[in-house]
Amino acid sequence: MHINFPLLLVIAVGVTGLLALLDRIWLAPRRRRAVAAYQAGAGTVDPDTLEKLNREPLLVEYGKSFFPVLAVVLILRSFLVEPFQIPSGSMKPTLAVGDFILVNKFSYGIRLPVLETKIIPIGDPQRGDVMVFRYPNDPRINFIKRVVGLPGDHIAYRDKRLFVNGEPVQRELLRTVQDDEVPAGHPLQALAKAEIYLEQLGAATHEARYKNMSQTPPPREWVVPEGHYFMVGDNRDNSNDSRYWTAPGMPTELWGMVPDNYIVGKAFAVWMHWPEPKLRNLPSFTRVGLID
């Protein structure tokens, strides 16, 4: 079950705001009139009675207390910055499972909460950006990948190599490490390695990970439609992304390219690492920094 948190937040702001408005224009004046009438007609004013007449209903008190807090959260989350946690290793080594990241919500334009309609265009995704977006097959789920293809681009993937508009993405082998995604006890665990490359995508220089024992997929090519983006994970052999897109009507399940109205924002920083949020396992801040 997926909880639509933005919708719940909008509803909460609306309900608490309505309670605050109701108190301001109707309930509070009525309380003041009751207090004035009691003071004018009573010979001796009883403090307890006076307090009771002037007391806000409990629901109104809570509504007035929570409204400004919820409103600030809604504004920050919808238009400025939203936090996310990385649940999978598809963006290794750039992002690890348990990284808590911050996403800029206005880099690609101001959008209405819930409706996700762009109302103020500011900028567009650039090749190399790390972007959070709603999964094309299930918009209730958020994904994070790197922008490889822009509208109109020709993308190819062959021999584990990305090509953009006919040119191979420039890369340089940095190091070879043990493949930590192979289960312990696997007969080939000792032989499984991962090669870490430094790649250049647009203005972004980042690391990408390739498994030496994974199968090489058949070569494929795509043309990115207008208003869409081709997204790929940095963990190239362990990422479901736009490379697994097929033409509409084909029996294979679509992953899909990402339409503009599914964009959430640009990931720009890691602020905490906490793979298992439990008291016995405290968070770490060693991975804090900007996202390349």
Rank of each mutant, 00 (worst) to 15 (best):
H2C: 01
H2Y: 03
N4I: 11
N4K: 02
N4Y: 04
F5N: 10
L7R: 12
G14Y: 00
T16F: 00
G17H: 01
L18H: 06
A20R: 04
W26S: 14
R30C: 04
R31D: 12
R32K: 13
Q39Y: 03
A40F: 12
V45I: 13
P47C: 11
P47W: 06
D48Y: 06
T49F: 08
L50W: 13
L53I: 06
N54I: 01
R55L: 05
E56Y: 10
L58I: 07
L59H: 01
L59W: 03
E61H: 07
K64A: 07
K64N: 08
V69P: 10
A71M: 11
V72S: 04
R77P: 07
R77W: 04
L80G: 00
V81T: 02
V81R: 02
P83C: 06
I86F: 07
P87A: 10
S88A: 15
S90A: 15
L95R: 14
L102K: 12
V103R: 10
S107E: 15
R111T: 09
E116H: 15
T117S: 09
K118E: 14
K118T: 14
I122M: 15
Q126L: 11
G128P: 05
V132D: 04
P136Y: 10
N137R: 15
R140Y: 11
R140S: 13
I141G: 05
R146N: 10
R146T: 09
V148M: 00
V148G: 02
G149K: 12
G152S: 08
D153A: 11
H154L: 11
A156Q: 14
A156S: 14
D159Y: 02
D159V: 05
D159A: 10
R161G: 03
R161C: 12
F163H: 09
V164N: 07
N165C: 03
P168G: 13
V169Y: 05
E172T: 15
L174D: 10
L174K: 01
Q178V: 08
D180A: 07
E181W: 03
P187N: 10
Q189W: 06
Q189H: 06
A190S: 12
K193M: 14
L198C: 08
T205I: 02
P217A: 09
R220P: 00
P225S: 07
G227I: 01
Y229V: 00
Y229I: 00
G233P: 05
G233K: 08
S239V: 09
N240W: 06
D241T: 14
W245P: 04
G249F: 07
L254M: 15
G256C: 09
N261W: 02
N261M: 00
F268C: 11
A269H: 08
V270P: 08
W271N: 08
W271G: 04
M272F: 02
M272Y: 09
E276T: 07
L279M: 13
L279N: 10
R280Y: 03
L282V: 15
L290R: 13
D292F: 04
